[in-house]
């Protein structure tokens, strides 16, 4: 277990370092930054801009800037936004809660709906409930968040007046965006659930169980579902990554605050310290999720536990 922890910590560090380095390189290949853009717009001369860049240390050679950034990162210092001049950690901190809340609620919807649809489809292949579930899951996969979101606002907010369409702050504000984002993500969970369940259902040991005369319900719950859980868990974990991306669109659509809005704004404004900060955060989130998934795998799948010990 100690080896496991050490290896995972090391690989997490490597992932974060790799992401930061790639992002740092990519952002500096593109010419210009927020300072140049904002100041030119305001009517500054080249000399004014150069002075400001020098004041922020942006005139130093790239390797120096890179090492400075990494050194800051090790101390937990993400730097300052070029535009608002606030610490990046403050900017992220302000928005993190809202995005976590949206992502958690959407994940809940996605898992409940996705598992439900997948099971229904696998259990009733060919019959109408299976076909209906299949249609819904394809619909969930193939309709963009923009479309479902606008439709949901139109129906539940403008037309029926049940829920607020915009803003954040209360549970009421969370329901529509979480449902829309969760619905979209549920599609892939449902598809994978169905595929895995169907695969397991025709496995030899299930045939044996049937031959033993075990009741169908029992086989489904104990043998099929249990064996299918680990791969489903992996898909769900992968979807959490998507949730962070999908949150950007959902946040814009429902005028919610959050990391997604912050990221999109920072990319367009070329406010690179903010972009890098969010890259670091995403890398950490991904690594953490993959560690948690591995641990859960161990719990759910005895074979993994034995190999890992």
């Amino acid at each position: 277990m100690r080896h496991f922890a050490r290896d995972r910590l090391l690989s997490t560090l490597l992932i974060v370092w790799g992401c930061v380095t790639l992002a740092f390189a990519a952002l500096h290949i593109i010419p210009g930054n927020a300072i140049v853009g904002q100041m030119l717009q305001g009517g500054a001369t080249q000399a004014d801009i150069a002075a400001r860049q020098a004041a922020l240390g942006l005139d130093r050679p790239l390797p120096v800037q890179y090492v400075t950034y990494l050194a800051g990162l090790l101390r937990g210092d993400l730097g300052y936004s070029y535009i608002s001049q606030l610490p990046v950690s403050t900017l992220i901190g302000e928005q993190l809660g809202a995005t976590v809340m949206l992502a958690a609620a959407a994940l809940l919807v996605a898992v409940a709906l996705g598992l439900g649809l997948g099971i229904l489809e696998a259990a009733h292949t060919g019959a109408w409930p299976g076909r209906l579930a299949g249609t819904i899951s394809v619909l969930a996969l193939s309709t963009p968040i923009y479309w479902t979101g606008t439709a949901a606002i139109f129906i539940f907010s403008s037309w029926l007046g049940l829920l607020p369409a915009t803003g954040s702050g209360s549970i009421d504000h969370l329901i529509l965006p979480a449902a829309v984002l969760g619905f979209h993500v549920s599609g892939s969970i449902a598809r994978v659930t169905r595929t895995i369940l169907t695969e397991v259902m025709y496995a030899d040991y299930i045939r044996v169980a049937r031959a033993k005369g075990l009741p169908g319900q029992y086989i489904f719950r104990v043998h099929i579902l249990r064996a299918s859980l680990p791969p489903i868990l992996t898909v769900v974990a992968l979807q959490i990554g998507f949730l962070l991306g999908g949150a950007a669109i959902t946040e814009a659509l429902f005028a919610r605050q959050g990391i997604g809005q912050l990221l999109v704004g920072a990319v367009i404004d070329q406010d690179y310290p903010v972009v890098l900060g969010i890259v670091v955060l995403s890398a950490l989130v991904y690594s953490t999720i993959s560690v948690v998934t591995d641990i859960l795998h161990g719990i759910l799948d005895p074979r993994v536990r034995e190999n890992g010990a």
Partner: peptide
């Protein structure tokens, strides 16, 4: 409040 998505603006006004 910040309504960055253009179609949302008219919907928010109507509701």
């Amino acid at each position: 409040r910040f309504l960055e998505d253009p179609p949302t603006r008219a919907l928010a006004l109507e509701s």
